[in-house]
Each structure stands twice: as C-alpha cells, then as structure tokens.
Write a protein that binds this DNA or RNA. Structure first.
Length: 480
RNA sequence: CGGGGCGUGGCUCAGCCUGGUUAGAGCGCCUGCUUCGGGAGCAGGAGGCCGGUGGUUCGAAUCCACUCGCCCCGACCA
C-alpha cells in the first residue's frame, strides 16, 4: 500500500489547484507578498529560474542574439503609437503619475511589455541595411494588472525575457520567428521535460500589434492548455508607428520588419504542475537547483565512518553535479527523505552501514522511487546515467499524457463532449471565421490554442462548427 | 470586475451563532537526554496588538460598517 508521505499537502490527483498552491508554499518556491497578486520568488524557486535563464540564454547567444536592458517606464504617448497594441494592453497597464510630490506632465506606464520603448530606441539606431539584423534580448520584469492571479502562472509582476529583433525583409523576420519558436520547443521539451505543441495563433488570439503570433502550448494534468511561450512576427506595424526605416542596398528607404518573443517565470508553474506528484515537486535534472541529495544513515557506532565516506562521495559528485550533502544530525533519515522529495530533488543517494559493508550506495529515483544499488566505484557514471534517464522519462511521461489527451473530433457534438468530459486538446478542422471560434468559446469555454504547421492541409475537410470548407486543422482546448 | 467562501502563535484549525476569567489544541519551534534504513521518544519551555480601521457596548476574537488580502466559480489575459 502506497502511503502518503507528505503531511498536509492535498493529493494532486484530487485537487490540482490546492495541491499546486500548497506545494509551491511548502517547497518554498514562492510566498505571497502583502500586495494583491504579487509574490516573492524564494531562493528555491529563483534557482530554477536561474537555470532556465542560463539554458535559454546560451541558446539565444548561439543564434547571434545579445542582451541589453531598456527602461522600466514607457511614456504614455509611446505606448499609444501602435493602435492595436495600446488597445490590447490598456486595461492592464499600471501608471506612474507622480514623481515625489510632483505631478508628472506625461504619465509613465510601467512596462507590460517593451515594444514601445524598444522601438523608440530602434528608430534611432537603425539607418542602413548594414545595421540589420538587430538581434537584442532583455531579461526583465513586467507588470500587468491582472484581475485573477496565481503564483507563477499569472502574477501582477513577472520575470521574463523578451527578444526584439529588426530585419530587412519579411522573410528574414519570419525565419527568426520560427527559429525562436524552435528554440522554445527544444528548451521546454529537452530541459523542462514538458511536451509542447508548436503552431500559429488565430487572429483573435494573437499578440496585440502582431501580424502573426506563434506559440508553444503545453497540456496541464487537469486537461487545460498553458501557453508556454510566444514568438511574434510584428510585420511593419511597429516600424511604421515608430519610424524604424533603413536605406536598403537598392537605395530605397524602407520600413523594417520586426519580431518579438518571450517566455516567463510561468514556465516554473508549468514544470511544477506537469511533473509533481502527491509527495511534492519533481524537478527535471537539467533545471533542478539540487540534482542529487546524499543522505547518510547511521547508528552511533557507525557515525564517523558513514559521515566521512559520505563526505568523500559528496566531494567527488560536486565536481560534476549540483549536489547537497544532508549530514544534519538533528533530523532522521526518514524526515530527510520526505523533505527532499517535497522539494523535488530528482535523485537521492542513501549511504548506510549496510551499504558500506557491501561497498555500495543506494540510488533512489524521485520519479519512480526505484531503488538502485550502485557500487562505490561507479557512482559518478551511474549518477549521470540515472539523471539522464529521469530527465528522459519525465518527458516521455509528459508526452504520453499529452498524446493520450489529444483527440480528433468527428463532429461538433463529439468535440463538445470531449471538452466537457475529458478535456485536453481537440483537433478539428476550422473554416477560419471568427464567429465559429467565438461560438466554440461560448459553448465549451475552449479556444483555438494553435494552428499547427501541418494544419494548413485541409482538402475536403469541413469546419467542425459550421460545416463550410475548412481552412485549417486547429487545436482547441480550455486554457489557463 | 460580478457571485460565493475564508482571514485567530510558523502551519492546520477550534472558539464567534447566544459578547464577560489569564484565547485553546495538534503539528512545528527552543533546551536537555535517549534516538536515527521512510516525517523518532520522553521531560521542560518560548511564542498571539484574533488581517486592518472605525463603530456599538460597562466590556469585542465574538455584533455592525468600511477596508486589505487569500481561495473557488464566472467575464478578461504570459
């Protein structure tokens, strides 16, 4: 009989929402700040973010991007320059109207996203085709005055990266948009071990001011989709609004083509939800703050031998892994097991008198609880191997779940039933009209999450809602 | 932003309806001893402007008003 080892955490399977909030608090990823919708990212949570930053930043740099930092504030008039953009963000912008006791002449928006301020600068920096492409990313915080908030998934202030690029042609911009989309997919699947679908957003769902928005969408355990990252082809919408022009090789003055793209601390929320279990977090090895915890086990007579042996193992492991040696004497082994499981450390190494006798240690996988005896002299190799397997198995589990919950619907009735009873993604043809999209939303609460690249081939297919000829095969789902 | 629920030591909650000694419990925390292969045992101890403000009252955790925050369900969004 599987016993519940973590006290006071609701079962994930029974109440995902309560489980999520409890686990985040008990594992000390975040805590509520005293202001509505705001949270403190605590060291255990921030360490995951640092790993995300490191792994993504490397990919950005490898593809020619550089980092910079733009101001937190955006003058109201700048924000208003691109009509759709301001309309899309206006309801959730926080404003600064006073500096000290002085009323400001022009209110400053606390950036909800930085297109406006960055484009204003780009208009100064771009003159010639030789200045292009301009490939800048920034790691920053943004503020959106959300009505409903939830730690990591939607908070008033959040951390993210936003890339903003400028290109000479539509084609180059489009190439960039898809390159980034692939980086996101690669990172989320390989490092966060979360299966995602990549595709384009419908016009209704696209970014305010974009020509096209591309997205990666992940499926959460309750069958709701989560937008995990977006990459926008801004076309010339912003370059026209902000006068970003360059003189091309043909001596013509042209408006530039732009992209913007981002992922946020929301990814931490997704990682928690996708991988965790009733006993707490399971953090994929590649982003885990601690990949390995060593727990020594001893009675008084064995104490010195076990502790020094553990120290040796720790010393060699730490050269290659993020490892913690929990030699605290004031807690029992059982207590430590439960504690580190709650915190999601993917691999535990147990070392006790029995093991020393056999010249071995015992590996315990966080995800499967499998116990693996490992000879002392092969700890390093086996640790690498087992962590690799955990990383892979977590992804396979996420992938299997996502595929199991991606269903084709024969007709509208079936689609409604799936969305009501099973949730998950429903794949169906769509005529491309917003009325059908809205009807689905009203009747099922599901939206078009994405139009996959292969979804453009629709010969003979009919819209699942209205029966007219389909333009796309699309993925519907309820979402966060 | 609408509807509902909830704020009492670090955590989970009791007490509130029917106002009245020093506001309780379990867990956690501190000290000591014994323990240590799945959240150890015993003994002693510390810790609370009862979310905030104002009101009613001789007297408020308890009644009233306002306010802040959290959770759930809807409308809006990474």
């Amino acid at each position: 009989m599987e016993e519940k080892l973590v006290k006071e955490v609701p079962k994930k399977s029974e109440n995902l929402s309560q489980w999520y909030l409890e686990v985040i608090r008990k594992a000390e990823l975040a805590d509520y700040a005293p202001m509505k919708g705001m949270m403190v990212i605590r060291p255990a949570g921030y360490a995951i973010w640092e790993n995300i930053q490191r792994l993504l930043d490397r990919r950005f740099k490898e593809t020619g991007h550089v980092n910079a930092y733009f101001p937190l504030f955006i003058p109201e008039s700048f924000l208003k320059k691109e009509a759709e953009h301001v309309e899309g963000f206006a309801p959730e912008v926080a404003w600064v109207t006073k500096g000290g006791s002085e009323e400001l002449q022009e209110p400053l928006a606390v950036r909800p996203t930085s297109e406006a301020i960055i484009c204003a600068m780009y208009s100064k920096w771009v003159r010639s085709w030789r200045d292009l492409p301009l490939l800048i990313n920034q790691w920053a915080n943004v503020v959106r005055w959300e009505k409903v908030t939830r730690p990591f998934l939607r908070t008033t202030e959040f951390l993210w990266q936003e890339g903003h690029t400028v290109h000479a042609t539509f084609e180059e911009a489009q190439e960039e948009v898809l390159r980034i989309l692939n980086i996101y997919k690669d990172f989320i699947e390989n490092d966060l071990a979360i299966k995602v679908y990549a595709g384009r957003k419908s016009d209704r769902e696209k970014f305010a001011g974009a020509l096209y928005t591309y997205t990666v969408e992940a499926l959460m355990p309750d069958g709701k989709a989560l937008q995990a990252g977006t990459s926008h082809n801004l076309g010339q919408n912003f370059s026209r609004a902000f006068e970003i022009r360059f003189e091309d090789k043909d001596q013509q003055l042209k408006y530039a083509w732009q992209t913007s793209w981002g992922v946020s601390t929301r990814l931490i929320g997704a990682t928690v939800m996708v991988h965790g279990d009733d006993d707490g977090l399971i953090i994929p090895p590649k982003v885990a703050p601690h990949q390995i915890v060593i727990v020594p086990i001893y009675k008084a007579k064995d104490k010195n031998e076990v502790l020094s042996k553990g120290e040796n193992i720790f010393a060699s492991l730490r050269e290659k892994f993020r490892v913690v040696y929990d030699s605290r004497e004031e807690y029992t082994p059982g207590w430590k097991f439960a504690e580190w499981e709650l915190r999601g450390v993917p691999l535990r190494i147990e070392l006790g008198p029995k093991d020393i006798q056999k010249n071995q240690v015992v590996f315990v996988r966080r995800d499967t609880r499998e116990k693996i005896p490992v000879p002392m002299n092969s700890i390093m190799d086996r640790a690498e191997e087992v962590l690799g397997r955990i990383q892979k198995d977590l992804f396979l589990r996420s992938e299997a779940f996502t595929l199991e919950n991606t269903r084709e619907a024969k007709d509208y009735q079936e689609m409604k039933e799936i969305l009501e009873e099973k949730r998950g993604f429903v794949v169906a043809p769509w005529c491309g009209n917003e009325e059908c999209e809205l009807k689905v939303k009203e009747e099922t609460k599901a939206t078009i999450r994405l139009i996959p690249p292969e979804g453009e081939n629709v010969e003979g297919k009919k819209c699942v809602v209205c029966g007219r000829p389909a333009k796309h095969i699309v993925y519907f789902a309820r979402s966060y």
